[in-house]
Design a binder for these strands. Structure first.
Length: 560
RNA sequence: UGUCCCAUGGUGUAAUGGUAGCACUGCAGAUUUUGGUUCUGCCGGUUCAGGUUCGAGCCCUGGUGGGACAACCA
């Protein structure tokens, strides 16, 4: 009878709309979405939300999802961005259905429709200056006034529009405007501009066009041409919807028409998301390019060591709604840790080395100890790690005068070396400045891991054999801003909140030899420290690792 | 002195007129040869005022608060 195990999954508001449409047999139950980036910049985590939403919905409802470049403004757009956008989408794990498409594919059709609107008296060529047109538009609280060209003869507009297309006029001297309503309380309905003159080479159409359509005129019609059923966009386009519908009213003939639905864009705490601000960070050299691991760009996250899976699960978790939101970055960090915990090999790396000499370990002896590659994955196997009389441990793991709850090394204290022996600190040496230079320990030969030894000590340290250690540079990344909402302060610039410690480069790190042949992009857990990946700058004679995210650290937290 | 949109724990997001749930964060504890993972528990919420109803987070009215709109950008 009842199937209590089959709970009804809760739907977000867009899924509700789609399911209702399917139930009503709207568009014969066909579901077709699209992701429409403008190729004028790199994709960021906010776009990832939109990509996961659109492509995800298509998968969920057996529909399709197009990739369509909204390339109607040649002065800002470039193939460089087209390529990076395609790469990022595929890296995230999605594939568009045919295409990719370009709004510029539809310039001819758009022109044809524009002529039709002029013929029907629904569009006209305005010859006024930009300043004048803007002035006549009025303000949201006061109606605008009509252009003196508004009711000029159709033939005149037709002729002028064709000559605009043919390149007879200078940039900015004429525009084609839709004849809607200058008194509308919605500014976008006050005779919006459909075409402007731009003698600019387009990355795909070259010099074919001297006029280019505006977003509002191109977008809905492109949706219509592609058979899009649900056209998802962010909240700031809500007020454009009446215009989206008005333009569609002028060209739609059958029963099919796309529907625009708006959702809230993603905001992340401790970061900025606007393309303009990200561009500023790049251009002013505050970060090292669009793929700097501190950037919220997809390419930055990729270089930082994020996985597509982790970004997709993040997108699932944040949900979709219509209210403004700021997602805590800790949720993003949780998502990567969750995935990396499952897939990464545990290795040992010492970031800030201090030498430990095991005085009772035979000078001529050396051995290998076995370490589990990944306790979360029983098929991951194990590997042998060299151990010796001299090892490195991390400076943070030793204190001259440690508090009782410090479960690490201190004078007279015992700790276990992960996978090896229990050692006891007998003595240590300092330099003039008081820095610890060497630590002298003895080991208990009866306590080798895996030998059935039962003696337990509270602390376990990671270590690297001094003789076998390989050198590496490690880049420690932290959030770029120290304020939760860097661009949320009226009287302050977002750059006032830059974190001076967002990047720390450690150049004297010691890693276990297993990592000698790690390749760019390879990901590991450095035991007890965090998740790290090999940076593309890395070379076989100079390894470079990026810290993706530290491990959760309840000890550090307690001592904050 | 406009139009449109939004309002549920610290942060997100469910509940579609019938027990306010989940995730992250935070705080405890158990386990642990990673102060990780895993497991358990706890803290904490319907913006306000009316109305409709047997019953309102949900419907209605008003208030308050927040956001969007005045590019020949998208």
């Amino acid at each position: 009878m009842d199937t209590p195990d089959k709970e009804t999954k809760s739907l977000n508001f867009i899924e509700s709309i789609i399911e209702e449409d399917i139930n009503n047999k709207k568009h014969d139950g066909r579901i077709h979405l699209r992701f429409p980036p403008e190729p004028n910049g790199y994709l960021h985590i906010g776009h990832a939300k939109s990509i996961c939403l659109n492509f995800g919905l298509a998968q969920e409802y057996n529909g399709k999802c197009n990739l369509r470049f909204d390339d109607t403004n040649p002065v800002k757009e470039d193939v460089e961005y087209v390529d990076s956008i395609k790469e990022d989408i595929q890296w995230l794990g999605f594939q568009w259905d045919e295409g990719p498409y370009y709004a510029s594919d539809y310039f001819d059709k758009l022109y044809e429709w524009a002529v039709k609107l002029i013929q029907e008296g629904k569009a006209y060529v305005d010859e006024q200056s930009q300043a004048l047109i803007s002035e006549q538009k009025g303000v949201p609280t006061r109606p605008g006034v009509e252009s003196p060209y508004r009711n000029r003869p159709v033939e005149e507009s037709l002729d002028l529009f064709e000559r605009m297309k043919n390149g007879e006029f200078e940039d900015g001297t004429k525009v084609l405007r839709a004849k809607v309503d200058m008194t509308s309380p919605n500014m976008h309905m006050r005779d919006p501009i459909m075409y402007r003159i731009l003698h600019s080479e387009h990355h795909r159409t070259g010099n074919k066009w001297n006029i280019y359509p505006m977003y509002d005129w191109a977008h809905g019609q492109s949706d219509f041409i592609e058979g899009i059923t649900h056209s998802l966009c962010t909240l700031e386009f809500e007020i454009h919807r009446p215009l989206y519908d008005w333009f569609l009213d002028q060209i739609v003939e059958g029963s099919y028409r796309p529907r625009q639905i708006e959702f809230a864009r993603l905001n992340l705490s401790y970061t900025v998301m606007s393309k303009r601000k990200l561009l500023q960070l790049v251009e002013e050299g505050i970060v090292n390019g669009w793929d700097d691991p501190r950037m919220p760009t997809i390419s930055g996250l990729r270089r930082r060591g994020y996985t597509p899976e982790s970004i997709r699960s993040f997108a699932d978790r944040i949900g979709v709604a219509k209210r403004d939101n700021i997602i805590d970055v800790s949720l993003l960090e949780f998502s990567v840790r969750e995935h990396l915990n499952k897939i990464t090999t545990r290795v040992m790396g010492v970031l800030n080395p201090v030498k430990v000499i095991i005085t009772n370990y035979p000078e001529d002896k050396s051995e290998e100890v076995e370490l589990t590659n990944n306790p979360e994955d029983e098929n991951s196997g194990s590997r042998m790690v060299p151990f010796g009389r001299e090892i490195y441990i991390d400076r943070d793991d030793f204190m001259e005068d440690p508090p009782r709850k410090f479960f690490r090394m201190g004078p007279g204290r015992e700790v276990r070396l992960k996978g090896a022996y229990i050692i006891k600190c007998e003595d240590y040496k300092k330099d003039d400045k008081g820095n610890i230079t060497e630590i002298y320990c003895t080991y208990d030969s009866e306590t080798k891991s895996g030998s059935g030894a039962t003696r337990k000590v509270k602390g376990t340290l990671h270590w690297v054999s001094a003789e076998h250690a390989i050198d590496a540079e490690v880049r420690l990344y932290d959030r770029l801003f120290v304020d939760e909402e860097p661009d949320g302060h009226k009287d302050k610039d977002f750059k006032d909140f830059l974190n001076p410690e967002s990047l720390k480069v450690l150049s004297n790190c010691k890693l276990e030899p297993y990592l000698a042949h790690a390749k760019a992009g390879d990901k590991f857990q450095f035991q007890r420290l965090g998740y790290f990946c090999v940076d593309p700058d890395s070379r076989s004679n100079k390894l470079i690792f990026n810290r993706t995210v530290p491990l959760r650290d309840s000890w550090a937290k307690k001592n904050r």
